[in-house]
C-alpha cells in the first residue's frame, strides 16, 4: 500500500480538544522531492496537523508514516534524527546564541552522524540561505527575516528528508518574502528535500508549490495541482465566500 516514492504520509488523522473536533480523517502525502503547500482559512487545523506530524500532539486516531515506517507519537528529538525538521510560525531561535551556534545545534544533534563534520554542514546550510556573513552575530540582534533564515538554516543543517515550514512568510515585507522564496526554491534544488509548507499567503503557495492541499474546518476539501485548486469551487467558497460576506 505504500508507494515507493511517498516520503511522508498522514493517514486518517483525527484529533479533538475537549470535544471540539479540530481534524477529522485527514489524509495527506508528500512525495520525495515534492513541495506541497497546505492552505486554509484561520482555524482550519493547519497548525494542528503540523503539530501532529512533529509529535507535539498525539492524534486520537490515525497514523503518520515516514518512508512507510510508522512514526506516530515518537519523541520529537528522534523524529528529527529520522529526517523530519521544522520551523515555527512564531520564530523559535536560540536568541542568546550566535547564528552559527543556532545552526550548529541542528548540525550536531539533528543528524544521525552527530558531531563529525558538523561545522562544515552548518556553514553550508548558512551559505545556502545566504546568511554566512552573519555567523558570529547574536540572534537577538538580527531582524525577524534573518531569524527566519537562521531557523531554515538550522533545519537544513540537520540534513532532513522533509522540512515542515510553518507560515514562514508571516510578518515579512515584500522584499523579504522574495528572498525567502528564492531560499526555499534553492534549498529544494540543491538538497533534493521535500517540503510541506503551511502558509496564509495563498499567492506565494500557488506560484511555487507542486501540489496544494486545502483544509477547512478540520477536513481536507481539496488536493491537487495549484491551477486546479485555484478553480475549485469548494476552495473558492472557503476563501472568497468569507471575504464576500465581509465586504
Amino acid at each position: 500500500m505504500s508507494h515507493s516514492d511517498t516520503l511522508l504520509r498522514v493517514d486518517k488523522i483525527s484529533i479533538s480538544f475537549g470535544g471540539l473536533a479540530v481534524l477529522t480523517d485527514v489524509n495527506l502525502k508528500v512525495d520525495e522531492g515534492e513541495l506541497v503547500g497546505l492552505i486554509g482559512p484561520n482555524g482550519a487545523g493547519k497548525s494542528t496537523l503540523f503539530n501532529v506530524i512533529s509529535s507535539i500532539y498525539k492524534p486520537d486516531t490515525g497514523d503518520v508514516f515516514l518512508k512507510g515506517k510508522k512514526i506516530t507519537g515518537i519523541a520529537p528529538h528522534k523524529l528529527c534524527r529520522m529526517g523530519i525538521s521544522r520551523t515555527y510560525q512564531l520564530v523559535k531561535t536560540f536568541n542568546k546564541m550566535t547564528a552559527l551556534e543556532n545552526v550548529m545545534v541542528g548540525a550536531i544533534y539533528g543528524h544521525k552522524h552527530g558531531g563529525s563534520d558538523a561545522k562544515t554542514r552548518a556553514i553550508d546550510a548558512m551559505s545556502l540561505v545566504g546568511i554566512e556573513d552573519k555567523q558570529n552575530i547574536l540572534v537577538s540582534h538580527l531582524t525577524l527575516s534573518d531569524r527566519r533564515l537562521v531557523e531554515v538554516a538550522r533545519s537544513l543543517a540537520s540534513s532532513p528528508l522533509v522540512t515542515l515550514l510553518d507560515e514562514p512568510m508571516a510578518g515579512l515585507n515584500v522584499s523579504e518574502i522574495k528572498t525567502l522564496l528564492t531560499v526555499i526554491k534553492r534549498a529544494r534544488e540543491e538538497r533534493k528535500i521535500s517540503i510541506l509548507w503551511v502558509e496564509h499567503k495563498v499567492d506565494a503557495i500557488f506560484r511555487t508549490c507542486d501540489r496544494v492541499a486545502v483544509l477547512n474546518y478540520g477536513a481536507k476539501i481539496a488536493d491537487g495541482k495549484p491551477e486546479e485548486i485555484a478553480k475549485d469551487s469548494k476552495v473558492i467558497e472557503a476563501y472568497l465566500g468569507e471575504s464576500l460576506t465581509r465586504n
Partner: peptide, 8 residues
C-alpha cells in the same frame, strides 16, 4: 521546544 525538535 525548538531544542527538542532539533534532535536534542
Amino acid at each position: 521546544e525548538a531544542a527538542d525538535h532539533m534532535g536534542i
